[in-house]
Nucleic acid binder design. Structure first.
Length: 349
DNA sequence: AACGCGTGGGG
DNA sequence: TCCCCAAGCGT
């Protein structure tokens, strides 16, 4: 019995039902495979579920998604993080509609040419949507392979070796099930801490287990410490319960998303009086007690929050790119989580 | 080829 | 409270 046979037999018994997963023996439509894979990049299954359902209900086809305004896509994506994914998702939908007549290509080169589709996602789409024997190596598979072969080289240096070994195991038959089985194994059995080796279908083959070092693998290069940036966020409220928002630049951190105005976020000591000079409008700003803390990929953020009530006279001439949004309609806006926390902090206190 | 890029849950 | 890390990609 080969590695793939053992894994597929396990998968047939333990296959999970997921929103994007077709019934046994059937294929998920390429649009759904693609959409779920983009959402699942660096994001947990539990988080993605509801977003996936909302997206496919609102945009049932790639052409519908391509026809949507980018801002609608960003709003629907709000909270999922890594917002470049949403921008690329939209661009990719348009490319598939325009270049490929609304059908996803099956070959690796064409897939890799689409925005937001890299090595892993191209392989996952080939395998899951088209049952082609492509090797999809994500973080789960890296862990499984590193343990299976007791690869002691730390990531990311071990990646080429892992890629080669993973590719050698891919079966010609049931490639889609195999790809999902490897990821499921990593997500439910060969987990980062306290791996459940005793129920693992590959236990007999696992060199890491034999050596007693499975849980320590994969080793990783030490990561850099995160600096802390600080700033002052301005929540301007209208008496009827609306808040002033502005649009962030199209690229970079939270690119294309909405935010409340704020002073620049900088490392080092926070000087409230100088930050206050960045206020979007002259008003009686009240500095709230407490801080809003948020951690991004590469830095911690501590925002002090100032609040003011807008007087009707100065509402008209606000800077371009700014707009009012009623507090009960914030869900419809492209507000990242950090900004929801800021507004909540300002309103509830 | 490093680095920039979000967020939430678990230990 | 903190650290880890998750179905990675673009530059």
């Amino acid at each position: 019995m080969t590695h793939a046979d053992r894994l597929l037999a396990w998968y047939d018994r333990h296959r999970r039902t997921l929103p994007w997963r077709a019934a046994p023996g059937e294929r998920t439509a390429p649009y759904r495979v693609w959409l779920s894979e983009i959402m699942l990049q660096q994001t947990t299954v539990a988080t993605v579920g509801e977003y996936f359902r909302r997206f496919v209900e609102r945009w049932p086809t790639v052409e519908a998604l391509a026809a949507a305004p980018l801002d609608d896509v960003l709003s629907a994506w709000a909270g999922l993080g890594y917002y470049a994914r949403a921008r690329n998702l939209h661009a990719c939908a348009q490319a598939v509609s325009d270049r490929h007549g609304g059908r996803f290509p099956e070959d690796e080169a064409s897939l890799l040419a689409l925005p937001g589709i890299g090595r892993y996602t191209a392989a996952a789409i080939q395998a899951i949507a088209f049952d082609r024997p492509a090797s999809a190596v994500d973080g789960n598979v890296e862990r499984v392979i590193a343990r299976l072969y007791a690869i002691e080289t730390p990531l990311p240096d071990a990646k080429p070796d892992i890629q080669v070994r993973a590719a050698r195991l891919v079966p010609q038959q049931r490639a889609g099930d195999y790809a999902q089985a490897m990821m499921d194994l990593g997500a439910t059995v060969c987990i980062p801490r306290n791996p459940r080796c005793v129920i693992c279908p590959l236990m007999q083959n696992c060199k890491g287990r034999k050596l007693g070092i499975a849980e320590e693998l994969p080793r990783r290069a030490p990561k850099a410490e995160k600096p802390t940036r600080r700033g002052l966020a301005f929540v301007l409220l209208r008496k009827d319960g609306a808040v002033l928002l502005r649009k962030r630049p199209a690229k970079g951190l939270l690119g294309g998303m909405d935010e409340v105005p704020s002073s620049p976020w900088r490392e080092g000591p926070f000087v409230e009086s100088s930050a206050m000079s960045e206020a979007p409008v002259p008003a009686r700003w009240t500095v709230m007690t407490g801080l809003v803390r948020h951690t991004f990929t590469h830095f911690h953020l501590e925002l002090t929050v100032a609040r003011a009530i807008a007087t009707t006279g100065r509402l008209a001439g606000l800077a371009p790119g700014t707009s009012w949004c009623e507090l009960n309609k914030l869900d419809e806006r492209a507000l990242p989580t950090v900004m929801r926390k800021v507004i909540e902090h300002a309103v509830k206190a």
